[in-house]
Design a protein around this nucleic acid. Sequence first.
DNA 1: CGAGCTTATCGAACGATGTTCTATGAGGAA
DNA 2: TTCCTCATAGAACATCGTTCGATAAGCTCG
Lengths: 210, 210
Amino acid sequence: MAAALRVLDAEGMDGLSMRRVGEELGTGAASIYWHVRNKEQLLQLVFERVIEEAKLPEPDPWRWQEQLRVFADQMRAVLKSHRDVARLTLGRVPSGPALAVVSEWLFTLLTPVGIPDQVIAYLGDLFGLYVGAFTFEESLGTASFTGTDLSPEQFFTMLKDYLLSLPEDRFPHTRGAVDVLFGGSRDDRYAFGIDLMLRGLESYATKAPR
Amino acid sequence: MAAALRVLDAEGMDGLSMRRVGEELGTGAASIYWHVRNKEQLLQLVFERVIEEAKLPEPDPWRWQEQLRVFADQMRAVLKSHRDVARLTLGRVPSGPALAVVSEWLFTLLTPVGIPDQVIAYLGDLFGLYVGAFTFEESLGTASFTGTDLSPEQFFTMLKDYLLSLPEDRFPHTRGAVDVLFGGSRDDRYAFGIDLMLRGLESYATKAPR
DNA sequence: CGAGCTTATCGAACGATGTTCTATGAGGAA
DNA sequence: TTCCTCATAGAACATCGTTCGATAAGCTCG
């Protein structure tokens, strides 16, 4: 059932209509409503289905930072492996089982180094939010953008030129740092966010794992 | 022009149709397309209009952490002050002027404490992403949720019960921490994210401001 | 004055969407 | 055979973003 939807997801999210799904199944559009209450529910099923693809390594508290990094990369890779699934993450809570597994994984990884339970709990949320939001923007990507019909490259060079045209006395730093503002790959930006959170987490880690 | 849209934004985003906007203006729906190319562009205008409401304090590097915190709270407050505007932030780049102002503010605030330019640049992105994503979820809030027609309270207590029904040997931490997982106000969760980033930033701050 | 241009609006229509309703079968159990 | 469930089909509804052509109102310029 939800399997035929993956086929659809592989051809994009806009244009994922009920009729299109029905066509994919060889049935009509209305037939779907027997299996599923809403389109919303259908999307939720797709979402959960994809989330379950993530595999977690055996938690090793001695290398908790590295493992969190791997976890973050994993999640992003999974979300990006299916077209537009990233757009479904925000505001969705993963299905019960997946939630439990990730939660337990985080606790067994981080409790031994002295990080408080409350911090771990919030961190799970935060991680999910970050990877969700980042891949979300990545998924929107270069689409439509600002309502103008400029290509993303055009748009960015325009913005760049604008920043360079700023009065030098009022925007000295920004003018000088325009290259560093727009430079950097997406991977770098993603890694930076994870890194910043990890650095923050270190200030909570009091013990060495025993 | 964009003024009449704020009135509409005050009555929700679903149901913000071109026809409704036209009605608000006392004109038809098609008339809008003379002023604006797309609905996308119209939303962009609304977004920029709202972003400009944010006021930044005079940057004071001696209290950079406190000021970043109030900045974050400011942004969230602004995004929440207009219904559903939060849903527009993700994937959007603020209009040129606003971008320049915020960027300059960040540089003058953080450069004096020794934080590298590259970090500041990425941080601007990250902050925007975080506040955008958080308010986004807040805006979706309790709507529709998982495709089921349960109220959010019902949903959460169900999820809670599920976690408590887990086998104790395989999910010891999660079972024990179920209250801390679901406890905590939204404000607390938001503050935690900001806090974690600030703690991470501290590890970049090498100098005391002079 | 009036011709022509820009500015702005209007109504009708098109195609597409999510969803509902009702009718209609297929397949097994009684 | 009869009945019940599982599943599908088609038609229709309301709504949406968008396009098109016609139509004025207000201005400038000859």
